[in-house]
Simulated assay, not measured.
Amino acid sequence: MKRFLMGSALALAGGGAAHAQSSVTVFGVVDLGVQYTKGEGGGSVKALSNGGLSTSRLGFRGTEDLGGGLRAGFWLEGSLNPDTGTGRPSNSNNQASGAGTAGPIAFDRMSFVSLSHQKFGELRLGRDFIPTHYNSIYFDPFNANGVARAGNLTFAGAGTGPLPTGITGSNTASYWLPAGLGGFYGMAMIGTGENDSTAPNRDDGNFAGARFGFASGAFDIAAAVTRTHFNATAAIGNYTHANIGGSWDAGFAKFFALYNKVTVKLAAGTVRKNTAEIGAHIPAFEVGRIRVSYAYLDDRSDESLRNANGMPRNRDDARQFGIGYVHNLSKRTALYGTYARLMNGGQARYVVSGGVAPAGGRRSSGWEFGVRHLF
């Protein structure tokens, strides 16, 4: 990371009257690999993969000490596609109508301004990850990245992919508890779709959520929930995502568990999906770790929701197994390899990240080998 101290510039701008210390940090990740994925009945793809270990990104963050324990700050962080030299799209209003397209760099991950106090916590205004996604990051052995990420199943909303507020939210205000609460931590967030009050969908994209947890020594556990309003259609409706996860570092291995419950109230009935995952990190060769996980999705949707062949969607269950190895060449550079196999039931068409969707009820699999560098 490269740090630029701004105090002298502030002093010049303020004629020597600046009293606060400010700093700006430029940071990022470049993560690329080779990948092969196959969807039975749907073909296969050989590709240069992106973000198999950590999401490629470019970011800027800064803070200013205002005195008395009060600090101002900002955070701008955008996903990168270094294989093509582009950025990833953002979403302006938490709805399908606000979806952008890949192209110039957009700060799709985080873009907020903040005020914080060491005793009273932090207030953020802008774009951020939603509460439930923080559990996906911390309690998935694959950190919500790569072909074996739990998100291949847990991100599923009405279909096999995430809804607009499944990962990040725009136009948000959030409050974060201060550190030093004896291991307790948490945050609450609201967001708005910013629709005209006279529009039929005036509440679409509005959401609220919270996450609270406790960490002490080797243990960490947290629960979260987020609820988004959408007028009910065949593809979207009021969306509730709740999860609970935890980790335990036993020394010889670090264990993870994550349980997700998703509900989407469509016009024709309610989608209900419960997903459980367990996994571990196992130290290896002094500078490496083996990563393993197993996840199961249980679809409990209403009988009124049917697939194209008439089969009830509540038979569309899925299982996924993932295994990988990370070898640290230094504190900033690592080599990695991952394999994932996803078994669909019924007419489910869940797919490993970056893969081709299989035929209904068929398998999806993939492997990737890559290098990640932090700066």
Rank of each mutant, 00 (worst) to 15 (best):
A9F: 14
L10R: 03
L12R: 14
L12C: 00
G14D: 14
V24S: 12
T25W: 08
F27N: 02
F27H: 11
D31N: 02
D31W: 00
V34Q: 11
V34K: 11
Y36N: 05
T37Y: 07
G39P: 05
G39K: 09
K46F: 14
A47L: 15
L48G: 07
S49Y: 08
S49D: 13
N50H: 11
L53H: 06
S54P: 01
T55D: 07
E64P: 03
D65Q: 02
G67A: 07
G68V: 04
A72S: 10
A72W: 02
S79G: 13
P82L: 10
P82Y: 09
G85T: 10
T86M: 08
P89A: 13
S90I: 11
S90P: 14
Q95S: 14
A96T: 15
T101D: 03
A102V: 13
D108W: 05
M110W: 04
V113N: 05
L115E: 12
S116W: 05
H117N: 11
G126Q: 09
G126M: 07
G126W: 00
R127I: 10
F129G: 01
F129R: 01
H133D: 15
Y134N: 12
N135S: 12
N143C: 00
A144Y: 06
N145L: 05
G146Y: 03
N152I: 07
L153M: 10
G157D: 04
A158R: 01
G159A: 14
P162H: 04
P162Y: 11
P162E: 14
T165P: 01
G166W: 12
N171Y: 06
T172I: 13
W176N: 02
G180Q: 10
L181S: 01
G182M: 06
Y185T: 10
M187K: 12
A188W: 09
A188G: 15
T192Q: 13
N195H: 14
A199C: 01
P200Y: 11
N201Y: 06
D203F: 13
D204K: 09
N206A: 11
I221V: 14
I221N: 00
R227Q: 15
H229K: 15
A232E: 07
T233A: 09
A234N: 14
A234F: 12
A235I: 13
I236N: 00
G237C: 07
N238E: 11
H241Q: 15
A242T: 12
A250F: 13
A250T: 08
G251Q: 08
F252R: 09
L258R: 02
N260L: 03
V262N: 08
V262R: 09
V264L: 03
V264A: 06
A268C: 04
A268I: 10
G269E: 04
G269L: 01
K273L: 08
K273Q: 13
N274W: 09
N274C: 13
A276L: 15
I278W: 01
F285C: 02
V292P: 06
Y294T: 11
D298S: 09
R300V: 01
R300F: 06
E303C: 07
S304V: 03
R306G: 02
M311S: 14
M311K: 02
R313S: 01
R315Q: 15
D316S: 05
A318W: 04
R319Y: 00
Y325G: 06
L329P: 10
K331M: 00
T333S: 11
Y336P: 10
T338C: 05
Y339G: 04
A348T: 03
V351L: 08
V352P: 00
V356K: 15
G360H: 09
R362Y: 10
R362W: 04
E368H: 03
R372F: 02
F375W: 00
